[in-house]
Amino acid sequence: MTHDTAPAVLNQSAWEDVFKGYEIVGVAIRDRDTLQTLARKAVTPEEGSHLLDGQIPTRIASIFLSDPEEDNVGYQELNGFAYPKLGVSRAPFERPGGLVTGMGKDGHAWPFGGGNGPMEMICPGDRPATLRLRCHFGRTYSVGLGRAIFRRDAVGQWTRIEGIPMSRDEDALQAAGFTDLDAFSETDLYAVGGHGDVWHFDGQAWRQMRFPSNEQLATVTCGGDGQVYITSEGGSLWVGERSTWRLLERRGSSILWNDTRWFNDQLWLASDYQLRVWNGREIAVPEHEGKPVLASGHMDAHDGLLVVADLWTVSTFDGREWRKVVAPYAD
């Protein structure tokens, strides 16, 4: 953060061991003292043109915010995961930790940080194509193309959520692929994606909800104020519930919001270039102690903590203070 002059949690030696030469592409909070990150080797366009996505060197790391400096990070290499997505697994599992999925035909999922492995398969042979992992009430959900939702019910056991029609037609995959899921409770869930494709689970059945636009949908957040917030193409923001929605702000961004989270009684939004909050009137730059908070990238919130990570830095906010966790050191 631009206003934070305190040293980063990770010292230079740890940063060089884990993050130097890599770009952070995912972050998640396991618990208030443990962050999970996903990083991939920074390759030039020329280097990338000779590699399949699954061949790009990838690292997953656990950062322990309360541990001594000399022992506050651990990482491992991850091989063969194309277009990886990062998530977490929590109670009721005995070993809460991180999860990484890949785009292979079996939907491989690798648990780490709370005990590593064994390798899991979300849906063998069926290419579940995970676009996002979300953990709600102790269960991790994989959402992806073709309105596919899978729930991790036990170690190595992923259950397909039934009752949502799916299609393998290419056009339908684009129009009806879930990109996010959030929940007020286990019997009040929302899944969004595709072109204005919104679904709700009421404890009995999944039903498609009317939405006033066929724009591409990116994220959904069930807010602490009882409202449901959905972002769409251009970075626009909608609010409502079930089949009643209204546009809060139309924006002209060329990219989608990566993540939205409810934290500290506000909706936070993060994209590759911006960190913003909805202040009840507009999407605004967040401020801390009278100064703008300059951050962007990916984001998560849990257990009274917000984390934001761009390609090179990771910062947390507990509602009172921003803390620099990872920052690049000069050579």
Results as ranks from 00 to 15, higher is better:
Asp272Leu: 11
Glu321Cys: 03
Thr244Gly: 08
Gln266Thr: 10
Leu189Ala: 09
Ala91Tyr: 06
Ile29Pro: 11
Glu287Leu: 03
Ala183Glu: 05
His200Asp: 07
Ala28Leu: 01
Ala28Lys: 09
Cys123Thr: 05
Val192Ile: 07
Gly104Phe: 12
Asp331Tyr: 13
Glu321Asn: 14
Asp153Trp: 06
Asp265Leu: 01
Gly194Asp: 09
Leu99Val: 01
Glu69Thr: 04
Gly114Asn: 07
Ala284Asn: 02
Ile161Cys: 06
Pro292Tyr: 10
Gln157Leu: 12
Tyr329Arg: 04
Val143Gln: 07
Leu247Gly: 04
Gly226Arg: 12
Val293Gln: 15
Ile255Met: 11
Ser13Cys: 04
His3Asn: 13
Asp17Ala: 15
Pro165Gly: 05
Leu275Ile: 06
Gly280Asn: 01
Asp303Arg: 08
Leu181Gln: 07
Ser254Lys: 13
Gln36Asp: 11
His136Met: 10
Gly114Thr: 04
Arg168Asn: 15
Ser253Pro: 00
Leu181Gly: 08
Val307Thr: 04
Ala154Leu: 11
Val192Tyr: 09
Gly304His: 12
Gln227Arg: 14
Tyr22Leu: 06
Asn264Glu: 15
Trp206Val: 02
Val43Gly: 00
Glu215Ser: 14
Asn279Met: 07
Val25Cys: 07
Ser49Trp: 11
Tyr141Pro: 05
Val43Gln: 02
Cys135Asp: 14
Gln76Asn: 04
Leu256Arg: 15
Tyr83Ser: 11
Asp225Val: 00
Glu186Asp: 15
Ala172Asp: 14
Gly97Trp: 12
Gln208Lys: 13
Ala39Trp: 09
Glu69Trp: 04
Asp169Ser: 09
Trp322Gln: 05
Val228Met: 08
Ser254Ile: 10
Gly252Phe: 15
Val307Glu: 10
Gln266Pro: 00
Arg210Gln: 15
Asp202Leu: 08
Gly234Ser: 10
Trp206Gln: 10
Ala39Met: 12
Thr58Asn: 05
Asp265Arg: 14
Ala270Glu: 07
Arg210Trp: 14
Asp106Trp: 03
Gly48Tyr: 12
Leu51Arg: 04
Gly80Val: 01
Leu51Ile: 00
Phe150Gly: 00
Arg160Asn: 08
Thr58Phe: 02
Leu99Asp: 06
Ile283Thr: 10
Ala183Tyr: 07
Glu321Thr: 09
Tyr229Gly: 02
Gly226Thr: 09
Asp310Met: 03
